[in-house]
Deep mutational scan, measured.
Amino acid sequence: KKIKIDLKKGPEGLGFTVVTRDSSIHGPGPIFVKNILPKGAAIKDGRLQSGDRILEVNGRDVTGRTQEELVAMLRSTKQGETASLVIAR
Rank of each mutant, 00 (worst) to 15 (best):
E81G: 10
D22T: 07
V18K: 01
R53I: 14
G64I: 09
K8P: 11
M73C: 07
H26V: 14
G10R: 07
R65S: 08
G59P: 01
I5A: 01
K9G: 14
D61G: 10
P38H: 14
A72V: 11
S50Y: 11
G40Y: 02
A88V: 05
R21A: 13
A42F: 02
L37G: 10
T66D: 09
K2G: 04
A42N: 02
E69A: 08
S84A: 11
K78W: 03
T77C: 09
E56R: 10
R47L: 08
R89T: 04
I36V: 12
S84M: 04
G51S: 06
Q49H: 11
P30S: 06
K78P: 09
E68A: 06
A83P: 02
R65H: 08
G51E: 12
E69Y: 06
V62D: 02
L55S: 04
A72Y: 06
N35Q: 12
A88W: 12
A83Y: 12
I3Q: 03
R75P: 04
V57A: 05
S84C: 12
F16L: 11
V19F: 15
I54Y: 00
G13R: 02
T17D: 14
I3N: 03
T77I: 10
I5M: 06
R65V: 04
L55K: 08
G13D: 09
K9T: 15
I31R: 02
Q67T: 04
R21H: 10
S76A: 07
V62L: 10
A83H: 15
G59F: 04
E68L: 02
G80F: 08
F16I: 02
A88L: 13
V33E: 01
L14K: 00
I87R: 05
E56I: 09
F16Y: 03
K34R: 11
D45P: 01
P28F: 12
I36L: 09
V57F: 15
Q79R: 08
R75E: 14
R65N: 08
R75C: 10
R65P: 05
V33H: 00
D45Q: 07
D61C: 08
G64F: 09
T77L: 10
R53K: 13
I5H: 00
D45Y: 02
R47M: 09
S50F: 09
E56H: 09
H26D: 14
I31C: 09
R60Q: 07
Q67W: 06
D45N: 07
K44A: 09
T66V: 03
K4N: 12
G64Q: 09
L74F: 14
P11A: 00
M73T: 05
D61E: 13
Q79C: 09
M73A: 06
R47V: 10
R89C: 02
T63L: 07
G64R: 07
R53N: 14
S24I: 04
P38M: 12
R21F: 09
Q79M: 07
